[in-house]
Design a protein around this nucleic acid. Sequence first.
DNA 1: AGAATATGTAAAGGAAACTTGACAAAACAC
DNA 2: GTGTTTTGTCAAGTTTCCTTTACATATTCT
Lengths: 68, 68
Amino acid sequence: MKNYVEQLRKEHGLNQDELAKILRVSRQTISSIENGKYNPSLELAFAISDFFQKTIEEIFVYERGTKK
Amino acid sequence: MKNYVEQLRKEHGLNQDELAKILRVSRQTISSIENGKYNPSLELAFAISDFFQKTIEEIFVYERGTKK
DNA sequence: AGAATATGTAAAGGAAACTTGACAAAACAC
DNA sequence: GTGTTTTGTCAAGTTTCCTTTACATATTCT
């Protein structure tokens, strides 16, 4: 599953640390998500979605069936 | 965060075991999600969303800021 | 160049999601 | 009612998400 978190973050003029603080997660969590190391929890996906005012589907691209 | 998984499952005439098999998770996972014991991963949320042909936002209701 | 800022990554640990196996209780037959 | 199906739940274990701390590499700015 890919995502547009890095792109959206930069559009908002934020660095990883600033976004992390806004979302109340660690900077490493943001980095890991941006680099596809793992997917966020549904909770965090909603928080990201909420902050960027986009739907989850606009930010996270699920590839049906492909297991990751 | 609440969800409409049980309602959608019943509308589709499925029991927990059948839905679990379709989504390739255990029946306990379906039960736990329906009863709010924990939230699904983003991956599983997408699989559910995909199967029921609804957006994640239509199935899972996020309460902003409330931490759970 | 050097200094400051931003990002990648690794280790070790905790918390949440998910597993299998089992059993009890509830719901639905007949 | 008894029997069958469905659901709730518990225990114990694995995997994934997320943490803190730390350091290395990049990027940016004088």
